[in-house]
Structure formats: C-alpha cells, structure tokens
Amino acid sequence: MSGEDLGFLFALLLNGTSIGFMYSLIALGFVLVYKATDAINFAQGEFVMMAGLIAAAILGIEGMPLIAAIIATLAIMIAFGFGFERIVLRPLLGRPVVAVIMATIGLAAVLRGLTPVIFGGETRALSLPIGDEPINIGPASLSPIQLVGIVVTVLFFAGFSWFFKKSRKGVAMRAVADNQQVAQAMGINVERYFALAWAMAGIVSAVGGIVWGSMLGVDVHLALVGLKVFPVVILGGLDSIGGALLGGLIIGIVESLVAGYVDPYVGGGTKDFVPYVLMIVVLMIKPYGIFGKRRIERV
C-alpha cells in the first residue's frame, strides 16, 4: 500500500469517525427514551430536523446572539419533548407498546408535513461563527464544526453515563424502565420520569439539530438522519448508552469506507444501504446488540 493509499484510508477513517460521533449523538436521544419508557421513538430524526429549523429561524433574526439562539432552541425542544409526552403519550400509558410506536410515527409525519408550512420549504444555512478553516490532521483534515460535533458528543455521553450510573435520579429512571408497577409502589413518580426522558431527548435533538444543521444546512431532509438511528441502536443495543456511541462510530466508519472503496466501482449509493445490511446481520447473530441487555428468563 503506497503512502497515498494510506493517506486516503486515514482520511476516510477520520471522516467516518466524525460522522459516526454525530450518529451517536442522535442515537443517544433515541436510547434515552427507550431506556426509561420502553417506547421506540420513530420521530427522532424529525426532532433533529425541527431543532435545526428552529435554530436557523432564530439565528436568522437580525442581531440575535448565538448563545441566546442556542438556549432558545434548547428551551423549545425541551418544552416540545415534555408536551408530546404529556399530551399524546400519557393517555396511552398502560396500553400496548405498539400504540406508542404508532403515535411517534404519526408525530413524524405531522412534523415533516407541518415544518415546511411554518418555516418554508427552502434549505436554510445555519452558520455558527466558528470559521470554516479546515484543521489539518496528518494527511486529512476536519472542519471546525466536525470538531465541535465530536467534542459535544463526547461531553453528552460522559454526562449521561454518569447520570444513569451514579445519580439517584438516574437509577430511579432505570428502575422505571425495568418495571413500572413496582417502581410506582416504591414511591417513584413514573410519569415524571417519562416526561424527563422525553425532555432529555429534546435536549439531545436540539444539539444534534444545531450541529448537523450547520454541516448540511437545514430543510426537511435533515429528518433522514433519523433513519440512521436504527442500524446504530440495533448494533449497539437499544438500551445501551455505550452501545449507541460504539454503534454510531461503526456505522459512520463503515459508511465512509464503502463510499471510498466500493462506490467508484458500482457508481455510488452503497453507503445508503450498507448500514442496514449490517443491521440485519447483527440481528441474526446478536439480537440484543453488542451491549444490549438480555432479558433474563428464569425457568
């Protein structure tokens, strides 16, 4: 392998890693909800899209400082997560899980349809004032926004891991996920923790939307990143925070590698389906994912 080839490989790996971190961040929102409420949120991508659009719209206001826009986006997304849980999901409490899944699919469709009406259909730029001078790392380079994405993702993962392992609220949240009825009888207000989980998904989506949005620009297509959540979480395990991180990195790197090495021979497009091939393979050999918790059966 020549030096040039190695450099190409390195660039693909670096790019894949940075995209992978972003996938992980969005998957984290999904895992948080699943971990606490056992609900599968099919609207995760739409959450991210909505956050991106809101951030772009607020930043578009003349003279709006960046920090205020970020805080406002966070606040709106938290309120949205809270509100969705309260208004739509709470009446479904105690119903089969399918009801909740359908509600999130419905929400996804509503958001995809409604946002162009509110924010307009055109692609908006979401530019953070961090410059776009690429940072050279060896033979490859990263844009500043990619670096920001990586740092933010790492911080969020560290924070949530600590929360679930060490804080009493986090332990209570896992107890709720484990058995709602028993958790109630232990004095845990289950509904409050559901709301908290959705609010946390809102926070993660807000950050994801801002970072993704400033990489790609925001329009309805930003919701498509939500589709990548599924291979990521299946790979890592639906309820594992570490798994979401690892799954995201694997999917990001695999995508980047096939785009670099396979696409030139077949004319492109492989990176859009290879993650799903990987997902199906994982489901066949390790149905709980790499870190997913196996349900304990006693006989």
């Binding site: 332990v171 896992r174 009825q181 028993v182 958790a183 009888a185 232990m186 004095g187 845990i188 304990i296």
Partner: peptide
C-alpha cells in the same frame, strides 16, 4: 409499601441499585 408476589426485583439493576431505587 407493597412487596410483590414472585419477587419482581429490578433485574437490570445491581443489588445495591435496587435498594437505592427503593429509597427514592
């Protein structure tokens, strides 16, 4: 507080985490 039939511990939590959740 009720102790349920068939034990029903929080299976995914460690022993001590179960107690922490109980003291919520």
């Amino acid at each position: 507080v009720q102790v349920f039939e068939g034990r029903r511990v929080f299976e995914q939590l460690t022993c001590e985490e179960n107690l922490i959740a109980g003291g919520h």
